[in-house]
């Protein structure tokens, strides 16, 4: 009972954050549309890349046909948008907050500090990409004649959630790391560089690299796993989905606990 009361309280708190951010966003309407358009252009050019590549007459790229690739791109769009809207701007502000001792105020409040730190800001401009991505996904599934089962959709949604939490955990680790060691800009650049590797079909990479991209820097887990259960042309797709799901959840759990643990430990170090 106590537990439920707590989650309701946090949910209410979060809705309050979102409301405040919405208020702010309405003041800078013009900015909002420019930002949204900018992000759309970014994804559009990625899609156009494959559009023109397939137009040169090739059939497939290491087993992926045109619409399967489109589904991958749509998934990238969805995952990035949710992560960008919900977490990104919160995370990159953490170092300055810690250094300016703004954290002190947060730590004295009777609310989970990681919650406050990572969910305060909600960015509508970036989050809106989720809908564009979803629309593009539906279009690609339809045009590509790709059949999906209810189970497949469920797996997909869970894997997208894992992906967002993974992205959060990894950036959270890097941000925490930067508190003690390096300047933040370099690290964020590094983060995107490695995550971008996972935005391509995983089958183009040699086996050893692929293992690295699953277990060490899980970029493939983030972007490729969800699509894999949706459009993967494996026989035994069902069995494959279950194993993918279990693997993804396990990796996500490890990274999430690791990141929160590391943050709390560094914080203690910082304050001692």
């Amino acid at each position: 009972m106590v537990h439920r009361g707590r989650s309701v309280r946090y949910l209410k708190l979060y809705l309050n954050f979102v409301k405040n951010c919405f208020r702010r966003e309405t003041i800078y309407r013009f900015n909002f549309f420019v930002n949204m358009f900018t992000v759309v252009m970014g994804y559009a050019s990625h899609i156009l890349f494959y559009y023109f590549v397939y137009d040169t007459g090739i059939e497939q790229i290491s087993g992926w046909d045109r619409y399967q690739i489109y589904c991958l791109l749509a998934t990238v769009w969805i995952v990035d948008s949710i992560f960008g809207g919900v977490f990104f701007f919160n995370l990159i502000k953490i170092p300055s907050k810690v250094k300016n001792y703004e954290l002190d105020g947060l730590l004295t409040k009777p609310v989970n500090s990681v919650f406050m730190l990572s969910l305060r800001q909600f960015n509508f401009g970036l989050f809106s990409g989720t809908f564009f991505g979803a629309a593009f996904l539906i279009y690609s599934l339809w045009r590509g004649n790709i059949r999906v089962s209810a189970f497949g959709i469920l797996c997909y949604l869970i894997l997208v959630m894992c992906a967002v939490i993974l992205l959060f955990s990894i950036l959270f680790i890097m941000v925490t790391f930067s508190l003690r060691f390096v300047r933040i800009q370099g690290l964020i650049g590094m983060y995107w560089t490695f995550m971008d590797i996972g935005k391509n079909p995983h089958s183009i990479y040699p086996m050893a690299l692929k293992y690295g991209l699953v277990f060490i820097i899980p970029a493939i887990v983030v972007y490729n796993f969800p699509v894999q259960v949706l459009v993967g042309n494996h026989y035994l797709r069902y069995l494959n989905s279950v194993s993918t799901l279990i693997l993804a959840i396990a990796i996500t759990a490890v990274f999430l606990t690791g990141s929160v643990f590391y943050f709390r430990k560094s914080l203690r170090y910082y304050y001692d």
Binding site: G57, I58, I61, I197, N200, P201
Partner: peptide, 22 residues
């Protein structure tokens, strides 16, 4: 150095694309 990483990715990606025999 981090800018070089995407170049390595291109090596794999285009290898797969040229793999169609063109």
């Amino acid at each position: 150095f981090f800018g070089c990483v995407p170049l390595l990715v291109y090596i794999f990606l285009w290898k797969a694309i040229y793999g169609n025999g063109l």
